[in-house]
């Protein structure tokens, strides 16, 4: 870029410069998309510090693999996939480090939530956005990482079942089962939260 005006350049132009080793162009890409990459890491990890570290690691990996990026998707989608994979690796490590609880084993098979009565009243209907977000955050934190991740990938990343299965290295049936459990558990948690003082 002759005038080095990175701020007005489009992502693909910055990517091309970065692929040639221009770190200033890459810095501009980091500046533009850092919140989104961090937000995705946080939605999966539920921990600010880990989310910051993993998002930074994702950017470093992004730089190292930049020549592999051919523009099949947008740069942010590509970067989001990198951070999701890093978070999944980290969450799997966490899981290996701790003994699985009975509840987690129950979750894998669907648990009691499959037979739980249907919640007909929408518990979040009258909530303000801030309050709703707090309650959703609290409920999401109570899900196992597998269930939370399936929800995040489906609802926020808008991935299809088969794409989620590929990302999480499991079958489509498992994705469907986890998604169903996660939604029902979330509905139950939100309904309970409503009755809190």
């Amino acid at each position: 870029m002759a005038d080095k005006d990175y701020s007005s350049a489009e992502d693909p132009a910055l990517v091309r410069l970065a692929q040639k080793g221009d770190t200033a162009a890459f810095e501009e890409l980091v500046f533009r998309h850092r919140d989104k990459i961090y937000a995705r890491a946080f939605s999966m990890m539920r921990n600010e510090e880990e989310a910051v570290d993993l998002s930074q690691e994702a950017w470093v990996k992004g730089w190292q693999r930049l020549t592999q990026f051919q523009g099949e998707s947008s740069f942010t989608t590509w970067m989001t996939r990198i951070v999701i994979n890093l978070c999944l690796d980290q969450l799997r490590k966490h899981k290996r480090q701790r003994a699985e609880s009975i509840e987690e084993l129950d979750e894998e098979s669907g648990g009691v939530e499959r037979q739980m009565p249907v919640i007909t009243v929408n518990p979040t209907e009258r909530l303000e956005r801030g309050e709703l977000r707090q309650r959703i955050d609290k409920a999401m934190s109570q899900l196992s990482y597998e269930h939370r991740t399936v929800l995040v990938l489906h609802e926020f990343e808008e991935m299809e079942y088969k794409e989620i299965a590929k990302t999480m290295d499991c079958s489509i049936g498992t994705v469907m089962s986890r998604l169903f459990y996660a939604r029902r558990k979330l509905a139950a948690l939100l309904a309970d939260l409503k009755s809190e003082p």
Binding site: D35, I119, T120, T124, R129, E155
Partner: peptide
């Protein structure tokens, strides 16, 4: 209805997250 409500609640809860650095 329950599944739709849960999905809607999730969508409505989305707000911009800012990096704390």
């Amino acid at each position: 209805k329950e599944l739709r409500n849960t999905r809607q609640a999730l969508k409505n809860s989305v707000s911009p997250v800012r990096l704390p650095e």
